[in-house]
Amino acid sequence: MSLPVLYSFRRCPYAMRARLAILASGLSVELREIVLREKAPEFLTSSPKGTVPVLVLPSAVIEESLDVMLWALDNSDPEGWLVMPEAGYDWISRCDGPFKTALDHTKYAVRYPDLNPEQER
């Protein structure tokens, strides 16, 4: 039986957290590092949006890091990472939502010429 395939990029923080959860779960995956300027055709076939991480399972494709983390920890959570107060999930939502949006507006300010990068920061 073949392992699930995790497409990743070593410096992407979202791919890092997916890899960390998989490591903590003790599950095995085949890790395939992506070269962002030369995305492999099989990667783009699995995930046309072309962002990492992407976990390819026999019956599904998981394209969001939090979903990859939940998949891993729902399968095996020996350290009890999912046992946290609701405030922990609130922090994850805040970081994935408003913080990430403001970060993108600051980091990629040229893509958002109508926004004030200082205000976004």
Score class of each variant (00 low, 15 high):
P53H: 08
P53I: 07
A109L: 02
K107C: 01
R11M: 14
I92A: 12
C95S: 05
S2D: 12
A87S: 15
T51V: 14
P117E: 05
P53L: 06
D74A: 11
Q119F: 06
I62R: 03
E118A: 13
L57Y: 11
G50T: 11
L66V: 05
R94I: 10
L36V: 06
E118R: 08
E63G: 10
S76P: 03
W81V: 07
A24K: 12
E33D: 15
V56Q: 13
A60W: 03
A72L: 02
V110M: 02
P113A: 05
D114N: 06
L115Q: 12
L20R: 09
V68M: 04
Y14Q: 11
W71R: 03
A60E: 15
N116A: 07
D74F: 01
D114I: 00
V52C: 11
I34S: 04
L73S: 07
P85K: 14
L23S: 09
E42L: 10
A18D: 03
A40R: 15
V35W: 00
E42F: 10
P58V: 08
L27I: 02
R11P: 03
R94F: 12
S47P: 01
F43P: 05
V56S: 08
K39F: 11
M69A: 09
E118F: 05
I22H: 02
L115Y: 07
P78D: 11
K107D: 00
F99Y: 12
S65P: 02
A60P: 00
P85D: 15
H105Y: 07
G26Y: 09
A24N: 01
W71F: 09
I62S: 02
W91V: 13
K107R: 14
K39I: 11
V61Q: 06
K100R: 14
A15F: 08
D67S: 07
S65Y: 04
L44P: 06
Y89A: 10
Y108Q: 07
G80P: 08
E79P: 00
Q119S: 04
A102D: 06
Y7A: 06
A21N: 07
L20N: 01
L31Q: 10
S47W: 12
K100P: 00
P53R: 10
S76C: 10
T45G: 06
D114P: 00
R111K: 14
P41D: 14
Y89T: 09
C95K: 06
T101A: 11
V5Q: 01
Y7D: 05
V56I: 10
R11E: 11
R17S: 09
V83E: 13
L82F: 05
E118H: 03
L66E: 02
G26P: 04
